[in-house]
Every structure is written in structure tokens, then in C-alpha cells.
């Protein structure tokens, strides 16, 4: 299932599994959320693909309703160490975006975006000593992914959505998802989670994007189909012309 031969900016979408959530709202809403999840992730993947100059695969976008206490398990379990970028979403559909890369993938990611990172520096890129350049590159990636993701949602929903500046942490999944739970705990027992994974086959880079809408945003997100029924109609960012790298 590699996509090596494809040009940069191209996204392949793995067959999506649609898993219906436990309860919480009619299934039709989850289908709409799924459409949004895929559209957002596709746009984000296109953007990342262009930054990296590599083709990306978009894997299994899903939308689910998870009991709050299970949210920490969504990104590989509470104790897994990851690089997490967290953004608040403002506008007519509030929520939180979380972009997650596994820690062991940080050197790959940084190698792709900060070409001159001296890989020989002890501890470089493993999250112990991120230098300013690396931090800012990662935050920029978070920013671009979030903007691309939210643009697709804005387009489908006809509302304006704005991301905050990203917060960056290299830490345990449990720790970097606490704030998501805390925000929801006073309001709900379950969380709607829109998630997708992007995968760069050549380097093995994998990243996940999670969108947790605030409960007040759910009616807005439920309008998804009013505007468009199919994620295929979301136009991704323009594919760059082929040429030399960079």
C-alpha cells in the first residue's frame, strides 16, 4: 500500500471504517461528523504533504462518541510519550484540536522540516532538548495543520473557525489530554472525537489529528450535510506544481 510513485501533495485515503458511537446523538450526526473528520484531515494532510514535499496517506478517519474516561486511550494509551500540539478552536463551533506525533518519530519529522538539525547532537530531536528552531518548526506545523483542518470544516459548515496559537509538549498522552477532559467533565459524560491519521510511507512518519468539539458546537457540526454531502467535494489545497524539491 505504498504510494511512493505518487507526486507530492497527493493524498491517498485508506478505506475508512465508520464506527458508530455508543449512543449520544443520532447516528446521522456521527455520519456528518465523519464527513467533517475526513474533510478536515484530508486538507491537513494535503498541507503537510506540501510542507514535507512528500506524498501522504490519510488513514481511517473516524468520528466516535467516547466515554470521557476513555479519551486518554485514543492516542495510544495514557503513558505513551508523544509530541503533542494543542490548539483551542474559536468561532461558531468551539473546541480543541490536538495533533500528535509519537516521540520516536520526532527526529523524522524534524529531519523533514529542519534539514540542518544535527542528528549527532546527543538527545537532539527526542524531545529532551528541543531547541528554539525545532520548537518553532513544530509549532508552525501544528498551526498549518490546524488551519488547513479548520478551513475544510469552515467550508463545509459555512461558519468561521479560528485556531489559537499552538501549545507544544513532549509528554505522556494522559498528561497532554487532561485539559480536554477537564473542559468537558463539567458538561458531559462523553466526548465526540473526530480523528484521523496521516502517514508518510517513505519515512514512516505517522501523525494523528483529533478534534474534540465543545458540546455547544455539536448542533453546528450537525449541519454539515446541509452544505455538502460528500467529502470528495472539499477541494484540497492546490497541489503544487511538480519540480525540484523545496
Amino acid at each position: 500500500m505504498t504510494t511512493r510513485s505518487r507526486g507530492r501533495g497527493k493524498i491517498t485515503v485508506a478505506r475508512s471504517r465508520r464506527r458508530s458511537g455508543r449512543r449520544a446523538g443520532p447516528t446521522t450526526d456521527l455520519k456528518r461528523f465523519h464527513v467533517l473528520s475526513e474533510a478536515g484531515a484530508r486538507n491537513a494532510a494535503t498541507a503537510l504533504s506540501q510542507i514535507l514535499g512528500r506524498p501522504l496517506r490519510l488513514a481511517v478517519p473516524w468520528a466516535r462518541v467516547l466515554p470521557l474516561e476513555k479519551v486518554k486511550e485514543m492516542a495510544g494509551g495514557a503513558s505513551r510519550v508523544v509530541c503533542a500540539l494543542s490548539l483551542k478552536v474559536y468561532g461558531e463551533a468551539r473546541g480543541n484540536l490536538l495533533v500528535v506525533f509519537r516521540r520516536d518519530q520526532l527526529p523524522i519529522l524534524l529531519g523533514l522540516v529542519v534539514p540542518r538539525t544535527p542528528a549527532a547532537t546527543p538527545g537532539a530531536g527526542d524531545g529532551h532538548v528541543l531547541n528554539e528552531m525545532e520548537r518553532s518548526a513544530l509549532m508552525e506545523i501544528g498551526n498549518i495543520l490546524a488551519c488547513a483542518y479548520l478551513n475544510a470544516l469552515s467550508h463545509l459548515l459555512g461558519v468561521s473557525l479560528l485556531p489559537s496559537i499552538p501549545g507544544l509538549a513532549v509528554d505522556m498522552v494522559g498528561a497532554v489530554t487532561d485539559h480536554l477532559l477537564i473542559e468537558l467533565a463539567a458538561l458531559a459524560d462523553s466526548a465526540v472525537v473526530l480523528a484521523s491519521q496521516v502517514h508518510e510511507p517513505e519515512s514512516g512518519l505517522k501523525g494523528s489529528i483529533f478534534f474534540l468539539p465543545h458540546p455547544s458546537a455539536l448542533p453546528v457540526l450537525g449541519r454539515a450535510q446541509v452544505r455538502s454531502a460528500s467529502p470528495a467535494r472539499v477541494r484540497p489545497l492546490r497541489t503544487p506544481t511538480r519540480g525540484g524539491p523545496r
Binding site: 470521557l68 503513558s79 498522552v173 497532554v176 489530554t177 487532561d178 477532559l181 467533565a185
Partner: peptide
């Protein structure tokens, strides 16, 4: 323990929380 959970136990048990952030 998961988020929002509480549990009591007696020796020799251990109780753990993985990945505690703002909690």
C-alpha cells in the same frame, strides 16, 4: 485509575495513574 475514578485498596496492592497532567 482512569480520570475521575477513585479506588481504595489494602496492602500489598498498588494504585496507579498513568499520565497525570492538570489533573
Amino acid at each position: 485509575l482512569r480520570a475521575g475514578e477513585l479506588r481504595v485498596a489494602e496492602a500489598p496492592a498498588r494504585l496507579a495513574i498513568h499520565g497525570l497532567g492538570s489533573c
